[in-house]
């Protein structure tokens, strides 16, 4: 079990209110991802749930029990840190055993769980090494192993993969996803990475300055962003947002069109512009178009390759039904 509910939770450091009153429910077994710009309070929120920070007001419930005043170790949660936070003087085996040792688990039981965790995480050959002798990916796996053996009701991850290189990140991402589907334990995951958020989450929580902008499934957020901020934040490359006369034509204060929902033609189209930089990725091409009269640059994404180069004139056409409209308060108009 691991249903986590925040009720009216606030957090201030001195005079600075980092989290204004906030409500959030994470269902049992759900994979929730917190995203948002740097400094928006993702880590703070996670630490509040873990109990590493005290709430300034409000309640935190885990499985309907009020844990606001309960010490971190009694909440039954496990956390994996960005810097791994392994104990450098202990071997991998001792690191993984540490929470069980603190809980007074019998030696035989410890051995059994260590062996199981090591097998699941491919660490069997490294059990007698110190953390300093491991690669970044192995260290992260040890940190996860240390979390697993406690059999927690929820896992908290604070940007666990951001210190790894791109290839390892993809591998670990899959491992964590598999772990989630195998164990069906609640997971809360903080990340900067769009791809991680979109691929792993059951539910994405978009935060800005401590305020929840939108909660929903990845595709919900992609297709129906609730406001301009979410529209601009979710999706890569970013959605193109225009205000002014072009928006007025659609009876909105701001309109948005995703780069992948824009057609490009060299002969005819709705908007005319000049090609700036074209990024050829092979599978896709990103074209940054200037002088459209809409915004500084309009980004377009087309599948495959296209023969345009710097300075060419191109025409852009939004796909029908893919324009997002927002009112003067930045809220979505359906």
């Amino acid at each position: 079990m691991g249903r986590i509910v925040l009720e009216n939770v606030t957090k201030s450091f001195g005079d600075v209110e980092v989290i204004p009153p906030l409500d959030l429910t994470i269902e049992d077994g759900e994979f929730a991802v917190f995203v948002g710009p740097s400094g928006c309070g993702k880590s703070t929120l996670l630490r509040l749930i873990a109990g590493l920070e005290d709430t300034s007001s409000g309640k935190i419930l885990i499985d309907d029990a009020d844990v606001t005043a309960v010490s971190p170790s009694k909440r039954g949660l496990a956390m994996v840190f960005q810097s791994y936070a392994l104990y450098p003087h202990m071997t991998v085996r001792k690191n993984i055993a540490f929470p069980m040792r603190m809980a007074g688990v019998s030696d035989a039981e410890q051995e059994k769980r260590i062996a199981a965790a090591a097998k699941a995480l491919n660490l069997t050959d490294y059990l007698d090494r110190k953390p300093g002798q491991l690669s970044g990916g192995q260290r992260q796996r040890v940190a996860i192993g240390r979390a697993i053996v406690r059999d927690p009701s929820a896992f908290l991850f604070d940007e666990p993969l951001s210190n790894l290189d791109a290839a390892l990140r993809v591998g670990m991402r899959l491992e964590i996803c598999e772990m989630h589907s195998r164990m069906e334990t609640t997971m809360i995951y903080v990340t900067h990475d769009q791809v991680e958020a979109m691929t792993m989450a059951d539910k994405i929580v978009v935060l800005q300055a401590g305020v929840i902008e939108q909660v929903g499934s990845p595709l919900d957020l992609y297709h129906k962003p609730r406001n301009v901020f979410v529209a601009g934040f979710i999706g890569s490359p970013r959605m193109n947002l225009f205000s002014g006369p072009e928006a007025a034509k659609h009876d909105a204060a701001t309109i948005g069109i995703r780069p992948e929902h824009t057609e490009v033609s060299t002969t005819e189209g709705t908007w005319k512009g000049i090609v700036g930089v074209a990024e050829h990725l092979g599978s896709d091409t990103f074209i940054h178009v200037h002088d459209t009269g809409l915004a500084d640059t309009v980004t377009v994404r087309i599948a495959g390759d296209i023969a345009v180069s710097h300075g060419d004139t191109v025409f852009l056409t939004p796909q029908a039904g893919q324009i997002h409209r927002f009112n003067a308060d930045g809220l979505r108009i359906d």
Binding site: L52, F81, L86, P88, F98, P99, M102, A103, R150
Partner: peptide, 20 residues
């Protein structure tokens, strides 16, 4: 962060002193 990890792992102040 090691200390925070230890707190979550259920280490008392004495255990943190002794083991970290």
């Amino acid at each position: 962060q090691q200390k925070e990890a230890a707190v979550l792992d259920g280490a008392s102040t004495w255990a943190q002193f002794r083991f970290l």
